[in-house]
């Protein structure tokens, strides 16, 4: 594993990012998927600990730039996984592959939309074009889809940045604060309904027709996840960090 230089600087980081993305692009064009995945993994591992511990000698607001780039590289990693999943000629005949690729597509798009605020260039354009084509494929093959959408009520919420009543502080959800994304951490959450919608907030909660089981009384049963704990920066968090909304 690469080690961070003791004289870490944002200039070095930017240069390393540029080199990594250039190499990634070449590997993807040559369909060297495993090499491309390893490259992303190695990049993230190089910076993860220093980022998590805020141990780098940079300004506190530069952690925001670091976060955006790390999420971008993770998005590229997701895309490699997606390419691997869909590389076989008949992947769309395999239900597990169809569902896994859908989830990976959602993860990849969400991370790249987040990072596109400051990451631009040939690589991100290529991925967005490719994701759009894959979404078209899903639309034509499986339709626009139906989704479950849970309503969640909670007794209150705490700001993930300052840990006070979410209503009381000035941190805005989705905003970046010294490398952290502001979210509302629910207190005693409970589901109060489950809706069937065609415009979900989280498209991962898709109902696949092959998972529906018709009962003798004509009712339908399905087993499926109704809430995903995904967050664009989840790979940078400790497993002990509470999930947020």
């Amino acid at each position: 594993m690469n080690r961070l230089s003791p004289n870490f600087s944002m200039e070095e980081f930017d240069s390393n990012t540029e080199d990594t993305v250039g190499s990634w692009l070449e590997m993807m064009l040559d369909e060297r998927f495993q090499d491309a995945a390893d490259l992303c993994d190695s990049f993230i591992e190089k910076y993860r600990a220093g980022f998590q511990e805020r141990a780098l000698k940079i300004e506190s607001n530069e952690y925001n730039d670091l976060l955006v780039v790390l999420v971008f590289i993770k998005g590229l990693f997701d895309y490699v996984q997606l390419c691997k999943l869909t590389s076989s000629e008949s992947w769309y005949n395999n239900k597990d592959y169809i569902e896994s690729a859908w989830i990976k597509l959602c993860d990849c798009r969400e991370r790249l939309v987040f990072s596109s605020q400051s990451c631009r260039g040939e690589a991100i354009d290529l991925v967005f074009r490719s994701l759009s084509k894959l979404e078209e494929f899903y639309l034509h093959t499986f339709g626009a889809g139906n989704y479950v959408s849970p309503g969640i009520e909670f007794e209150g919420g705490l700001c993930s940045i300052c840990n006070v009543d979410f209503r009381a502080c000035s941190h805005v959800p989705g905003g970046l604060y010294e490398g952290a994304i502001c979210t509302c951490r629910p207190i005693n959450p409970s589901f109060n309904h489950l809706a069937l919608v065609d415009t979900p907030k989280d498209p991962r909660c898709r109902i696949w027709s092959w998972n529906l089981q018709e009962n003798p009384d004509k009712s339908v049963t399905t087993m499926m996840p109704i809430l995903f704990a995904f967050s664009v920066d989840d790979f940078l968090r400790d497993s002990s960090t509470p999930s947020s909304i």
Partner: peptide, 30 residues
Amino acid sequence: SKLLKQENIACANSYDLGLDTKLTELRGLD
């Protein structure tokens, strides 16, 4: 309410008025 306050609008939410509220999050796109 937070965005309005950021732009220096004198804005109050339930917390500022001393109201005890629950919070809800609906996972549809609305």
